[in-house]
Design a protein around this nucleic acid. Structure first.
Lengths: 88, 88
DNA sequence: AATACATTTAGACGTTTATCTAAGTATCTA
DNA sequence: TAGATACTTAGATAAACGTCTAAATGTATT
């Protein structure tokens, strides 16, 4: 985790789209896979990158794993970007 | 240019540090090189990635090229991140 | 005009990344 | 408990990336 991982995670368009999906509602891995033309293995990889960066959390419920957006990391990045605008 | 390029550009720590340096003052390529233990060629590459993403602009003055932070692209990214927090 | 200085461009090299297929793990259901 | 479903892990591959050295370009100075 940390800045490096967060920015790296956000640098891929598939992962940004996943984040946008999770903004509206929590979704299972399978639901997310359905939104892309990509194998489940690939999406699983992207989810693990996002999770590792702290941008999403997962919640296993029986057969399913629900993914959820974690806004606190988003806040950190927002803060860094906002600081660029100050006191020049 | 576009989101993709901006996020990719921000995903490297050297480039983020360059941006932080430029937040305080405009600098020549050489001034920037002096802040890193890396060849001028490598820094030049990073500057070109940042420029291509619209995050910095350059201003040639004779022998020197001054680099400057472009906040409008920072604003776009800020807006995208901020939108993740809304109306969930 | 010749040399020095500031910076970029070209080309090479090792590492990381995104994707795939195939196999593994875990949970549910008949 | 056997098979189906949901998801991940392992291993492979091609492309992208970050860095370097060497060479090129453009500008200033003498």
């Amino acid at each position: 985790m940390g800045f490096q991982d967060s920015f790296k995670a956000l640098s891929d368009p598939t992962r940004r789209k996943i984040i946008e999906l999770l903004k509206d509602k929590n979704m299972t891995a399978g639901d997310i896979v359905d939104q892309f033309q990509m194998t489940g293995a690939s999406i699983s990889h992207h989810l693990s990158v996002l999770k590792n960066a702290g941008l999403v959390t997962d919640d296993k419920q029986g057969k399913y794993i629900y993914y959820e957006l974690n806004l606190s990391v988003v806040e950190e990045i927002l803060a860094w970007l906002a600081s660029l605008k100050e006191e020049k």
